[in-house]
């Protein structure tokens, strides 16, 4: 394969990774920003979203698109509900203490993972994409007759992958609007800025916390639903995205939404291109190395503010 098609394929694969990653990392970043909770169980909400998508899509007969749309609509709220219950039962009881929440969410990770193993089983299960046509990508080249189109071997993507990128983009815009243009967003930002003052202004901080934890989990679940027609639902699928989300959130700056999205793009695209030119393992090594450098030289990330 020549260089040009190589890069385009790498970018496309990278964009799909970045799309799903940004949804997940935004969820993680929101939860940390507002609640100061490092949610180690975040990857499991991603997995629960995918598993629920398999279950919902499988229980609806007829056109696979119908089942998938139902999964898109139902799986994230269900996962969010699960997260709200976890928040009320566990995180609230330990007073959102930073150290104890880390241990508690590690516990939650294993509880969710093992419950999925016990019910859903150890197999990977596919969900059919609502549409999935291969799109060959033509490139331009100079021939004796001037510019001409040609279709390089192996260069292509699928309509579904393009749709995933567009869907993630739409959702991110929606989140941004929610945060900046709505009353709910205002309350969230107020809680994030100063919990005590927000309480003094009669903001129901506990309810805000529960809803933010649910929202974060719902975003991870959406990522899971979007990815499941490309990959498959599996009880261990939450591990790698969790690691990458942490990388993204650290590089982007904990609690900073624009930083998170920029970092997701950076990590996703570099993963795509490095994987294709060198090896996927090297891409992971470089991403982890980048985190180490950020932690040493710019611990607040791209756009994060240095803690006082």
């Amino acid at each position: 394969m020549e260089l040009g098609p190589y890069i385009i394929l790498g970018l496309l694969e990278g964009l799909v990774t970045a799309a799903v990653l940004s949804l997940m990392a935004v969820g993680l970043s929101l939860v940390f920003g507002v609640m100061r909770v490092v949610n180690v169980a975040h990857g499991e909400f991603f997995m629960v979203g995918a598993v629920l998508a398999w279950w919902i899509a499988g229980s609806i007969e007829g056109n696979p698109a119908l089942g998938f749309v139902a999964a898109m609509l139902l799986a994230p709220p269900l996962t969010a509900g699960l997260a709200v219950i976890a928040d009320q039962l566990i995180l609230k009881r330990i007073g959102y203490d930073p150290e104890r929440t880390i241990v508690a969410t590690i516990g939650l990770l294993y509880v969710i993972q093992q419950l999925t193993l016990m019910t859903f089983g150890p197999d990977a299960r596919p969900v059919e994409a609502p549409f999935n046509n291969r799109l060959s990508i033509p490139l331009l080249e100079w021939t004796n007759d001037g510019l001409a189109l040609y279709w390089p071997w192996g260069l292509g993507t699928t309509s579904y992958k393009i749709a995933v990128i567009l869907a993630a983009l739409t959702l991110l815009v929606a989140i941004w609007l929610l945060m900046t243009r709505t009353r709910y967003g205002l309350i969230m930002r107020a809680t994030q800025l100063d919990r005590e003052t927000a309480l003094a202004f009669a903001i129901p901080v506990n309810r805000v916390y529960a809803s933010v934890f649910g929202l974060g989990a719902g975003l991870a679940a959406l990522g899971g639903v979007l990815i499941v027609p490309i990959q498959q639902a599996h009880y261990l699928m939450g591990h790698d995205p969790l690691l990458l989300s942490f990388i993204v959130v650290i590089i982007g700056g904990l609690g900073s939404l624009p930083g998170t999205i920029v970092a997701a793009l950076l990590i996703g695209l570099s993963d795509g291109i490095i994987s294709i030119f060198f090896s996927p393992t090297l891409a992971k090594i470089i991403a982890t190395l980048a985190v180490a450098f950020f932690l040493v030289f710019r611990p607040q990330g791209f756009f994060g503010k240095r803690a006082l």
């Binding site: 394929l9 790498g10 694969e13 990774t17 990977a124 490309i230 599996h234 790698d240 994987s275 996927p280």
Partner: peptide, 26 residues
């Protein structure tokens, strides 16, 4: 591994036969 497209560009253009054997959940 859970996604594979990134490995395929390493297939040389002059390949006559792909010999594949894979295991795992994906």
């Amino acid at each position: 591994e859970s996604s594979f497209t990134k490995y395929f560009p390493k297939i040389p253009r002059n390949t006559d036969v792909i010999y594949h054997v894979m295991v795992g959940p994906a």
